[in-house]
Write a protein that binds this DNA or RNA. Sequence first.
DNA 1: ACCCAGGGTCATA
DNA 2: TATGACCATGGG
Length: 215
Amino acid sequence: MSKENRLVHIYELLDTHYGPQNWWPADTPFEVMVGAVLVQNTTWRNASAAITCLKKARLMSPSAIRNTPINDLADFIVSSGYFNIKAQRLMALCEWLEESGGIDQIQRQSLKPLRRNLLSVHGIGPETADDILLYALGKPVFVIDAYTRRLFSRLGLLRANETYENLRLSFESVLRPNVGMFNQYHALIVVHGKNICKRQAECAECCLAELCDGV
DNA sequence: ACCCAGGGTCATA
DNA sequence: TATGACCATGGG
């Protein structure tokens, strides 16, 4: 089977098993961006609690965050962990948004320079940038994360120590750039990873069992 | 008490 | 380029 067909097949098995995920859970694109920073190396549960605190304090906007002292901002996002670091990262994100003329202006940038610009923001690395591009701005990028590496290396479809860029480009070069499908695919990989593929012992019960080859 | 979760930066070799 | 240290909470 071709690589494209394998990736599509895996997508269809996951999609059938788990159904629509409706990512990213947020009221606005800005809230997606904030969530993408807050969820770095923590659980969505912890990040989500921090988002609730920010909303309750009416801080879920670039200008409101910009006008809040960094230490006060940190107090609202304690539950997300690394709160001092993440407060700085949120501030850097909001400064960048402001300098760039806001989200609607950013939407108009073409993908490659936009991605470069995002990566130049302090605290926004490749995965956070791609979360923002795909889930906040609706751009066709394939998000790579630890679950993606674990799942596809276990299925024997990628080398374990490949760079982020090479992985992303290899998915994007094989799959048709469909935003809705990329959105759902990454959500499925995460949901699946949280359930079964963390423990490789249970391949038999997994919806991808036919591909797992007894790893 | 330990481990990890929807990462990223910085210092060192 | 490639490791290692660091950031810090909450649930298992």
